[in-house]
């Protein structure tokens, strides 16, 4: 259940513009958004309207031209790159559209990597925890394989396991099913639902209507502004026979 008293995530009057040649192209035009702990939020909208940019603000990958971005009360828009890297390792899990596993490390080591970087999990427990996470996403038998040796869906599940390595409270995902087939996408949906059930806060950018249906809150972005913010009592991940 969401806790409305302490928002986990706050975007306050966030503007973002990019220099394109001699012009300044606005991408976000004064976005205000609050996300409570335990919410599952889907950011939807047509391509080029600012969804991924908004997600990058939340993940500290990009900075607003003006406005504030507060995550667990911390103004991440003011943090240095070094501080952001450390913060991300400890407080945030990121799942990318193209998986972005390190090709030179096997799945197990990809999951151990954030633990090594953050140092919050004792060294002796890291391997076991990584195996447990891979088991949770159904990949325990593939732990010693390189990313190039498994399918896209398996890579994405491994990426989700990596995102959970340091048990972060917030997980963001940018088009996590963008490169997956229907069945594999369903696997990802189920994992996300389980994460939310376990108390994680999930913010997902998606074109996938079915994934959006899984979310309990849908925020639609158009032309850099939030045009719709719809909360539902429950998410409905069941596919219709036609989807």
């Amino acid at each position: 259940m969401a806790n409305h008293n302490a928002p986990l995530l706050q975007l306050i009057a966030v503007h973002k513009s990019y220099q394109v040649g001699d012009d300044l192209a606005p991408v976000l035009r004064g976005v205000d958004l609050q996300v409570d702990a335990g919410e599952f939020v889907a950011l939807v909208g047509a391509s080029g309207n600012g969804k991924s940019t908004l997600l990058n603000m939340i993940a500290g990958i990009d900075r607003p031209t003006s406005g504030q971005v507060l995550v667990t009360g911390r103004p991440i828009h003011q943090m240095s790159e070094e501080a952001l890297a450390v913060w991300r390792g400890a407080e945030l899990g990121i799942v990318f559209q193209f998986f972005q596993l390190l090709p030179a490390l096997n799945l197990l080591k990809n999951v151990v990597l954030p633990m090594d970087l953050a140092g919050s999990v004792p060294r002796r427990q890291r391997r076991a925890r990584a195996l447990a996470l891979l088991s949770m996403v159904g990949l325990a038998d593939h732990a010693d394989k390189l990313p190039s040796m498994v399918s896209g869906g398996q890579q994405q599940r491994a990426a989700i396991a990596r995102a959970l390595a340091n048990d972060p409270p917030l997980i963001v995902a940018d088009e996590p099913t963008g490169n997956l087939d229907t069945d594999t996408s369903d696997d990802v949906f189920r994992i996300f639902q389980q994460l939310v059930a376990d108390g994680k806060t999930l913010v997902v950018v998606t074109h996938d209507g079915h994934l959006a249906d899984c979310a309990r809150r849908v925020v639609e972005i158009a032309n850099g502004r939030i045009v719709r913010d719809e909360r539902r009592p429950t998410g409905d991940c069941a596919r219709s026979p036609q989807s």
Partner: peptide
């Protein structure tokens, strides 16, 4: 470059 980005995204310092 993309691997450097990932490393930083998952917590690596410069």
């Amino acid at each position: 470059t993309d691997q450097i980005g990932i490393l930083k995204a998952v917590g690596a310092r410069a």
